[in-house]
Nucleic acid binder design. Structure first.
Ligand SMILES: [Zn+2]
Ligand SMILES: [Zn+2]
Ligand SMILES: [Zn+2]
Ligand SMILES: [Zn+2]
Lengths: 132, 132
DNA sequence: TAACGTTTGTTATAATATAACATTTTGAAG
DNA sequence: CTTCAAAATGTTATATTATAACAAACGTTA
């Protein structure tokens, strides 16, 4: 809440749109939506997105090139993301699972590489699509 | 081995290039590399990539828009992928960890969604870059 | 107010991916 | 062998996603 004050004008506008959407938004769809507010160029959008990601306010759904607000108040700032994606209706949900995130945070491979961050995307059939 | 016979000419050419590379290749870099072999258009590359992914011969590293040969002979055909990515040197390695894949295969969320596939990407510092 | 880092604005261009359509190859069934 | 359908190919054009390069304005804070 204190942090939202530190957001710049463009960052606020774009976070607002992403938070109000009920699905991940693509950069150019965001651009289209904010043109009435004076943001005219892709770079203005991408720059705000980059900052918002750094702050953990939003995440990028990599396999979709789309951006979604973080609904997971206790997720580590831009460090650990997990999504479920329905391949039929395209619905994307951020997974909030303590055990899963603990497991992945503690995961280490044989080589001794240091993991600072991860992104996990599950694909499948959501409950709605499963029924039909 | 039997399956490689079923690959078409373009598919073989492109799989060959990806297998010989020691890093994930981008689609247009593949295109550049195969132009001497008569493959001239992006679509020819993308179509082969799509098929090779379906067959589990290669994977896409989503956050890098790059394609890498599957080194993991027992990984399920295009259904379960895990990579480690060094943010310094950009080295990408496919993770082959029975426990991890078992854990993720059995993971289910609270909603009851059916997971058919997942992709996990870890980011960090590889052992080489850690030292320097 | 001076100086620094961050943000903005703007134009152009790079990089990634797909649409649409015509043709050819392949492999199995009859 | 012929026929037929599915898969693969070839080609042109275009859509989508993302960054380069540069100049100006803003917001701290010393
Ligand atoms: Zn989150
Ligand atoms: Zn669905
Ligand atoms: Zn694999
Ligand atoms: Zn490294």
């Amino acid at each position: 809440m204190a942090q939202i004050q530190t957001l710049s004008k463009n960052q606020k506008i774009i976070l607002d749109i992403i938070e109000k959407a009920n699905e991940p938004l693509k950069a150019y769809s965001i651009l289209f939506n904010v043109q009435k507010k004076g943001i005219k160029a892709p770079l203005q959008v991408y720059r705000a997105l980059e900052k918002l990601i750094k702050l953990g306010k939003i995440h990028k759904v990599e396999s979709r090139n789309a951006f979604v607000a973080c609904k997971n108040s206790n997720c580590e700032i831009s460090k650990a993301t997990a999504f479920s994606i329905c391949e039929t209706c395209k619905k994307v949900t951020e997974i909030s699972d303590q055990k899963l995130s603990k497991y992945l945070k503690n995961f280490h491979d044989k080589t001794g590489m240091i993991y600072k961050k991860y992104n996990l995307e599950f694909y499948g059939l959501c409950t709605t699509c499963k029924r039909s």
